[in-house]
Nucleic acid binder design. Structure first.
Lengths: 250, 250
DNA sequence: CGTGATTTTGAGCAGGATCAAAAAGTGTGG
DNA sequence: CCACACTTTTTGATCCTGCTCAAAATCACG
């Protein structure tokens, strides 16, 4: 096992000056199959060191699409604004995840991206990524896969919204955050929700009140402990059964 | 009776032997900016002549992802099957539209694709498309855009499911089909719905009964005439106002 | 502290689901 | 061509989940 990460990192949040080769998250946001020299090429085009504070925008709807963004620390939400300013939360992005692929189609972002807390973001200019993708087949494939993953996630949300009850939706989100945390070697059972009840509700097609009631209900059922934004999952299996308990045949 | 591609076709719909350069739909499914010789290259990799009958599968969930598919005629629905066989319709695809980009992420299709009526489909092997994309930058961009468009469509559906009433959802679908028809120089105000009420409901997160009631309601309001699957849009502007009438601020 | 935002809880309502059944369309074989 | 079975659509009656309105409790922060 090669241990290329020689220096110790301050663990709390961003160390944005670190290179991709040294980044703890690089197995998440870079293609694992990429050769070392190719990683350097990608590293060269990435703009780091953009600590973004709570409520600040990474990009806005209608902005020209120039880059995609990797989350190094913190949490980002994306929203679309329809018609007269009605917001729809379209995604939450945790460290190691990539956002901003909307807008590839039209050349303009359709979403806005907003930091839910102080976050460190790596900007990856898309023009360079396109060029590089032509040179590095594995990178092209990786970009395709990123887009494909976004589609898969969106379609899961469509099913969730279309077919599942409030309890099932909230439980699904909790399990999603749990599993994404464990990908980063964080606790799968105890974490702090970066988003408000209102944002959860908006994302899941529910009102604030319903989200709050569902959390109380799950707590009464001894599935979770929810103290404000601190969440503890007491019964992962029970939660999973709940999310799959929608086996209503057509 | 035998399906030999070289013999003449019953031409009710498809004339699949036509080359991409001659296809009436090529401005829809090929990048318009592509050079003539590049069109030929794409043309060479495309498999035509797969007339698909009603209820037949183009591909199934879990199938290896090997190709994307362009609809030449007819209509295709895509569905995901979650858990114990519960189906979710994730999209309807009309002539000139491309499906099957799910599965790029995992290498396996996450959706199944099923013909709603007799359809002609062009199969575009993805491995070739990848290779070709590296050679032809405008094609790579086109593929990115296809994926991006799929994301944009999915996100619009998410907003629709999350924020809009039954009436608004159905009206939105009718207007979507209308505008997609007019892209193909077909009537924007009179068409035959290729899908059943049940499929509409499944797609929009509604029951069959609700879809039927909504159509009756829209008809009573003189916005449409719905006779079985024959739909006439009487008041496009009225329908548009209906779909935007969801300006509830958070 | 005080002010405003967020969360929680309660009471009542309503939009869409469910259950039920009739009507209309589609297909098959005799 | 019709009889019959099956599917799809429509309409009605009732129920229930989640929304709306309201207010209290808790939190965040200057």
């Amino acid at each position: 096992m090669q241990e290329s990460i020689t220096t110790s990192f301050p663990q709390c949040h961003a160390t944005p000056q670190v290179s991709c080769g040294q980044c703890r998250l690089n197995t998440l946001c870079l293609p694992i199959a990429m050769h070392v020299e190719d990683v350097d090429k990608v590293n060269d085009i990435i703009q780091r060191g953009r600590p973004t504070h709570k409520n600040e925008y990474i990009f806005r709807g209608e902005d020209d699409f120039t880059a995609v963004y990797a989350v190094r620390s913190g949490c980002i939400k994306t929203i679309t604004v329809s018609g007269e300013g009605q917001e729809q939360v379209t995604g939450f992005y945790l460290p190691g995840e990539i956002l901003g692929m909307d807008g590839i189609a039209s050349g303009k972002h359709t979403n806005s991206a907003i930091a839910l807390e102080t976050s460190a973001i790596c900007e990856i200019p898309f023009a360079h990524l396109e060029t590089l993708s032509s040179e590095i087949p594995s990178l092209q494939r990786h970009v395709f896969q990123l887009l494909g993953k976004e589609i898969a996630i969106d379609q899961q949300l469509i099913t969730l919204l279309s077919k599942n009850s409030a309890d099932e939706r909230v439980a699904t989100l909790l399990l999603s955050i749990s599993s994404r945390n464990s990908r980063r070697n964080l606790s799968a059972t105890h974490f702090r929700l970066p988003m408000s009840r209102a944002e959860v509700g908006n994302y899941l097609g529910l009102t604030v009140e319903t989200v709050s009631r569902v959390l109380s209900r799950l707590q009464k059922s001894n599935l979770i402990v929810a103290n404000k934004k601190e969440i503890t999952l007491l019964d992962l299996q029970g939660l999973r059964e709940l999310t799959q308990g929608n086996s209503r045949e057509v």
